[in-house]
Design a protein around this nucleic acid. Structure first.
Lengths: 211, 211
DNA sequence: ATCAAACTGGACTGTCCAGTCTAATCAATA
DNA sequence: TATTGATTAGACTGGACAGTCCAGTTTGAT
């Protein structure tokens, strides 16, 4: 095999990323300490700097990896397959999926940190917005377009309606989690009830009476 | 007069608080620099430490003052006086008021900072939550209770309904502003349209058909 | 004019930390 | 076994910064 060294490099790289994620999420960018990251990764500081140019570069990679991971997770679920089920079922499934994927301590910590660093690293906020909420909204808008065309949803701007729906579902839990910490994340059953209620409200405004 | 010195003390105190607000909002707790605060306040560092025990104490006072100020601003408006106007008018007024008070760069920066420091200073997040959203929700819940009793709103849990309404109004703009920075704050006309639509949706779900 | 409290500028201390350097060790290949 | 590249421990540099100290000045009241 000609990959002995390469494997070692990849492994230490991953250990460092995992450690950095943990430390950064807990302490923020300025509060994090490169010695602590190296120690958490069980790696020498030198190795950290062999893999990553600087604290800032490491930080950006950690955030990019987490943001990308979350986007992929959202993308995998609910892959439009439900197009021929009733609107109510589709919306309910989307709402539950999103809540269960996003409302985790890890992603809420990521979000808190990105918001906190929005002044220093504005591109992170934009990236998280575009890879998170915006992706979901676009997907929902596409589905709503379909449901409008088959008469299960009133005529309306699908993107606006999708935006409304998205934040009806995500707004309350997200904001509570932002300000109250992980203990502000609602329980599974609360989230479930909240999702059903959001769908009910949305359909009573945008649904077609007949159905 | 026996207040010469006292006046001076109060004035320098206010200059320091104003400067600290500016610097902290821009750089966060760790990123802020006490020398910069003193210089911005046109005051010597010594004076800063004569008024405030430490960086942390100053930070906490700044946040407390801003949080309290915002809470007061929300409290002053919409002082329940609208109890005998139609629900639609009341909800519209509340929504517009809240958006215009809260969706300002200054309060959005405060919110970003509190979220970013949620790990270090959890009590700030709780305080902002209780003095902000929770106050509004309670007020709306009280009003909804009234409207339920006079038959303009369906039977329901007023607190839950108020929570839904609050986040339908505030969720989308707030979250955009958190991740996208001040440029993510919607324009006045967008906010206006958004408020009207939120009221429409809410009433189609919770309103009484007759009216 | 005198006094006391507030204030100033700036030097100073101690600490923390990003990033570098060195000399030695370890692991895989050939 | 010899070579090569990855890794390690830990010392070190330089800069930033919270908080203190001091010696002198300003301010307002008596």
């Amino acid at each position: 095999m000609s990959n002995g060294a390469a494997t070692r490099v990849r492994r230490s790289r991953e250990k460092i990323l995992a450690a950095a994620e943990q430390v950064f999420l807990h302490s923020g960018f300025l509060g994090a300490n490169m010695d602590a990251i190296a120690e958490t990764a069980s790696v020498s500081k030198q190795t950290v700097y062999a893999r990553f140019q600087s604290k800032e570069a490491l930080f950006l990679e950690v955030i990019a990896a987490m943001t990308g991971g979350a986007a992929r997770a959202i993308g995998e679920h609910t892959e439009d397959a439900l197009d021929d089920s009733p609107v109510r079922d589709y919306l309910t499934a989307v709402a539950l999926d999103q809540l269960s994927i996003v409302m985790t301590p890890r992603l809420m910590q990521l979000r808190r940190m990105v918001i906190g660093e929005a002044e220093r690293f504005p591109e992170l906020g934009r990236s998280l917005y575009e890879n998170g909420p915006l992706v979901s909204i676009r997907r929902i808008a596409r589905a709503l377009g379909h449901y409008i065309s088959i008469g299960q949803i009133r005529e309306c701007d699908p993107h606006l309606a999708a935006t409304q729906f998205n934040w009806m579902v995500m707004g309350a839990p997200t904001n509570a989690a932002m300000l109250l910490g992980d203990s502000g994340i609602p329980s599974q059953s609360e989230l479930h009830a909240h999702a059903l209620e959001a769908v009910r409200i949305f359909l009573s405004a945008y649904g077609v009476p007949s159905t």
